[in-house]
């Protein structure tokens, strides 16, 4: 019953699918970190309209389910853009996946950045200013070293969450691991070993990463 040989037989193609997951993860994480940083700077700016716009963006990004945004970007956005611009626009599945996961991640990343920056005591800034440091120097030597240390564990676990979410992209026909599992499962008429194998493969990979994060967290606390 627990014969996982079918899973092993298709290891090459499944591994290829897993690489697509990692690709989507790398792309959407980069996009999320970039937009998240911009949104965080906007959220902390002294210009009220920019602050409100950033806060609104972050709230929406954190509130929309990834799957809903994925389907929306895949089906609605190219259609709406085509109508608006009067020419046919086509999104590749990988682009849709990167955009959807990146936007959702950026909302969470922005809040993590903000929490990290705001956790640096105000007195440190005042002290640095009193010592005659200029703003870039204060940022580079006082704020960022502390803030990065504070937000690193949270950023890492959010990235692990993002890696888990990349499994959704099979619904919009990105040939990731779940997509391959679906196709092979249908061809072989044996879904059990494939889904079970994939579930446990993910479990081991994610568990290793989570353990690493815990380890780093402890390490950062001690130093």
């Amino acid at each position: 019953m627990f014969d996982l040989s079918l899973f092993w037989e298709y290891r090459a193609i499944l591994l290829q699918g897993m690489l697509i997951n990692l690709l989507i993860f790398a792309l959407s994480s980069t996009l999320g970190l970039t937009i998240g940083l911009i949104a965080c700077v906007g959220r902390l700016s002294s210009f009220a309209p920019l602050r409100a716009a950033s806060a609104g963006y972050i709230e929406i990004g954190r509130s929309i389910p990834e799957f809903v945004l994925l389907i929306w970007i895949n089906n609605v956005l190219p259609f709406a853009l085509s109508t608006m611009l009067g020419e046919r626009i086509h999104f590749s599945p990988i682009l849709s996946a990167t955009l959807a996961l990146g936007v959702v991640a950026s909302g969470y990343f922005a809040e993590t950045f903000r929490a990290g920056i705001q956790a640096v005591p105000r007195g440190h800034l005042e002290a640095a200013r009193a010592l005659g440091m200029r703003t870039p120097r204060i940022l580079g030597r006082i704020v960022l070293p502390q803030a990065i240390r504070l937000m690193l564990p949270e950023l890492m676990s959010q990235n692990i969450g993002l890696l888990k979410t990349t499994t959704l992209v099979s619904v919009i026909a990105v040939p990731d691991i779940m997509y391959q599992v679906g196709i092979i499962g249908q061809q072989e008429m044996k879904p059990l070993p494939l889904y079970t194998g994939t579930a446990f493969a993910f479990f081991l990979v994610i568990l290793a990463l989570t353990t690493l994060v815990h380890h780093t967290h402890g390490h950062l606390r001690r130093s």
Partner: peptide
């Protein structure tokens, strides 16, 4: 906690 929800759902 360490398996993606989508994988669990299909499983």
């Amino acid at each position: 906690r360490n398996t993606p929800i989508f994988v669990q759902l299909l499983w």
